[in-house]
Simulated scan of single mutants.
Amino acid sequence: MNTESLRVNKQSWDEAAERFYGRNPLPEYGPLAPTEDELKLFGDVRNLKMLEIGCGSGHSLKYLDQRGAGELWGLDLSITQITAAKALLENAASPVRLFESPMENNPGIPADYFDIVFSIYALGWTTDLEKTLSNVHQYLKPGGLFIFSWEHPMYNRIRAKGGVLLMDKSYHEEGSYQHEAWSQPAIMQQYKLGTYINLLIENDFKIEKVVEDVSLSDEDIQRHANRWYSYDKAKALPAAFILKSRKS
């Protein structure tokens, strides 16, 4: 676990939290990606115990509360995000427990407890992917689901310039990097899709679904178009990937 990266990212998220309030929560999985309404990866969540890794402002947990989830748990690195989530979920029908914590640490989350652990566009912020996946495996009941989404590894390696797509970074290159679309200093992690899949397998998960589709309706394009996510790139390669796995 890189404590300096965590320090930088915590400060960055505390400053940027307001800008990302309610951005791309469930049923969305990320910019220009299919939604849970289309994919139905979660299934019936009534009475299930749910834990979100990188819960942000709490809007994905609210979505699950509205669908009858039994318990809502979440952790996030940013105290600003946790404060916003607590306010949003104050009147939730389900019991709520939120932790200010990096995903690489266990702040007091029980083992073998959750039916579903999920992460919506947050896992790439981990400074130790293997430790984070090990934690997730520990939290889940046997047979429990882990569902997460993140920016597709190819998307960051290709630029759209003058109507042409140019690959300016090797797909084989992995490790930390500063994302050019992030306004504050922030350190994310770059992995190949195979690295995510193989680490899941090594941590005793069974892969059930990998989604690399895009959603390019007029509404999607208008809602997500900016200098980083664009129709020109997304019509040629996925902006996000979604992965569903199950604890063996």
Rank of each mutant, 00 (worst) to 15 (best):
M1G: 14
M1K: 07
N2M: 07
S5F: 12
S5D: 08
V8G: 10
N9D: 13
K10E: 14
D14S: 00
E15T: 15
A16C: 00
A17Y: 05
A17D: 13
E18I: 10
R19A: 15
R19Q: 11
R19N: 07
R19K: 14
G22C: 06
Y29L: 09
Y29E: 03
G30V: 12
G30L: 00
P31M: 02
T35G: 09
E36Y: 08
R46G: 05
N47M: 08
L48F: 15
L51C: 09
I53P: 06
C55T: 11
S57H: 07
G58S: 06
L61W: 01
Y63D: 15
G68N: 05
L72K: 02
L72M: 11
L72D: 02
W73P: 06
W73V: 05
W73E: 00
G74H: 05
G74I: 09
L77W: 15
S78A: 15
T80E: 15
T80R: 12
T80Q: 11
A84Y: 10
A85P: 04
L88K: 14
N91P: 00
A92Y: 03
S94F: 04
V96A: 12
V96E: 03
R97T: 08
E100M: 02
S101D: 12
P102Q: 14
M103H: 12
M103S: 11
E104N: 12
N105S: 14
N106R: 04
P107N: 03
P107A: 12
G108V: 01
G108K: 09
P110A: 03
D112I: 03
D112F: 06
D115S: 02
V117I: 10
F118H: 09
S119T: 08
A122H: 01
A122R: 07
G124R: 12
T126L: 12
E130W: 03
T132A: 02
H137T: 00
L140D: 06
K141Q: 07
P142L: 06
G144M: 01
F146H: 04
I147R: 08
F148V: 06
F148E: 04
H152V: 02
H152Q: 05
M154P: 00
Y155Q: 08
Y155V: 02
Y155D: 01
N156Q: 05
N156F: 04
N156R: 00
N156H: 02
R157H: 13
R159C: 03
K161S: 09
K161Y: 12
K161G: 09
V164H: 14
V164E: 10
L165W: 01
K169S: 07
K169W: 08
S170A: 15
S170R: 05
G175R: 00
A181D: 10
S183Y: 07
I187V: 14
Q189H: 07
K192H: 01
L193Q: 01
I197V: 09
N198E: 03
N198P: 04
L199F: 06
N203R: 10
N203E: 07
N203K: 12
K206N: 04
I207E: 05
E208C: 04
E208K: 02
E208H: 02
V211I: 14
E212P: 03
E212V: 04
S217Q: 09
D218A: 15
I221P: 06
H224G: 08
H224Q: 02
A225W: 14
N226V: 13
W228F: 13
S230R: 06
D232E: 15
K233F: 14
A234K: 05
A236R: 13
A236G: 01
L237W: 09
A239K: 08
F241H: 10
L243Q: 07
S245Q: 10
S245Y: 00
K247Y: 12
